[in-house]
Design a protein around this nucleic acid. Structure first.
Lengths: 205, 205
DNA sequence: ACACGAATGTAAACACCGTTTACTATTACT
DNA sequence: AGTAATAGTAAACGGTGTTTACATTCGTGT
């Protein structure tokens, strides 16, 4: 049967997922228990198992939604910038870093090999942003903004770069190496090291 | 009193830590329970609390030992290479990646912001390798192997690069983007993208 | 050599966790 | 209206990290 309204099933399933997302964002993975999710969604812990096979499946769903939101942010970041420009690539890196900063707890989960398994890039929503990045790289090469090269290799290089900046700063406090109180922010270091990416490190010219 | 032998305290404490390290390496964090560590070290779970305040403190100790071993590997990697050479810097990256590959489970923990807290780089054994890397960079600049620049910024750039490669590959499978069955290895991608680091990406010369 | 206090270990309990079970209430459809 | 699937509940189960009450061992001063 089809009614315009959502089925009761869908309603509580959504409430569970919403509660799970909120809980993960505020309490982190430590405070994320089935009973806590249940209470937040006005349901009993056992009821969650009518909608998700186990806790991991619920976490996976949250991660999936996180990646969808992530992809949306990446698309928004480049939409108003000229096709084929280096600015588009820089904007993607910036959006990546901004997302990580604004959704810290969620980001820690998205790419955490301990809490969620290793993901095939192809199966991620929007290929985890890889597809967008690769397209911008190809276009930039066509427009002469980037040296011609293997776009997959460049995409991996640039992705691992922003990812490394974010993950390293999540794991380590560089407050004593860079005299910024509380440590420098990812966005600053991303900007400050950009020149190395464009011009290279070699002294030889 | 002082005897040549270790005190009983130190003995069982070592046995606990050894068991913890072995368990973490084989079963990962999922199989790492206080009772499992206890059984492996021939002791009761409660006894562990005479030596470590809580589970996290035990994990922290394992992480600390991991960082010490990590630093040793980095030092070994450069000792026979000429001071001031770019080869030293490349060797550090290589050792970083090799360590991550050979101690995968341990590495996932060392830099995981979810399982261990954010660490001050200065407090890590060997500053987590930062001190070694920075010294090699300064020496390379003095010998003209690297463009003159802020060594801290370059160190962060290079560290985040290897870290990003490793963490990204731990989280994601790129088997479909690079036609290497099961996905490419970190060492391959590290080598293949090195030219971007030395020469830069810009088309403009 | 002995005694005594601290250090170390044990077994059992506690509260919490993910998950399952037995049961009830609701829903959708003939 | 009747019925079979669906959705929800409360209680239980085994496992977890941690604490407790108690026993043992150890180190040391006399």
């Amino acid at each position: 049967m089809f009614t315009g309204a959502l089925s009761q099933t869908a309603r509580t399933q959504d409430r569970i997922v919403d509660a799970a997302r909120a809980l993960l964002a505020t309490a982190g993975l430590a405070g994320f228990s089935m009973r806590a999710v249940a209470e937040r969604s006005g349901v009993t812990a056992g009821a969650i198992y009518r909608h998700f096979r186990h806790k991991e499946a619920l976490v996976e769903r949250v991660v999936e939604l996180g990646f969808e939101q992530f992809e949306r942010k990446l698309l928004e970041a480049i939409v108003s910038l000229p096709v084929g420009s280096f600015a588009r690539i820089a904007a993607l890196g910036d959006a990546y870093i901004r997302f990580a900063a604004e959704h810290e707890e969620e980001f820690k989960i998205l790419f955490n090999p301990v809490v969620t398994g290793r993901k095939r890039v192809k199966d991620l929503p929007g290929q985890g942003g890889y597809a967008i990045l690769r397209r911008c790289i190809v276009e930039a090469m066509e427009h002469g903004a980037l040296k011609e090269s293997d776009p997959d290799l460049v995409a991996f290089y640039l992705w691992s770069r922003v990812h490394g900046i974010v993950m390293l700063l999540l794991a380590c406090d560089f407050g004593d190496e860079f005299d910024v109180e509380g440590g420098p922010e990812a966005a600053e270091l991303f900007d400050a090291t950009r020149v190395y990416v464009t011009a290279g490190l070699n002294a030889r010219e």
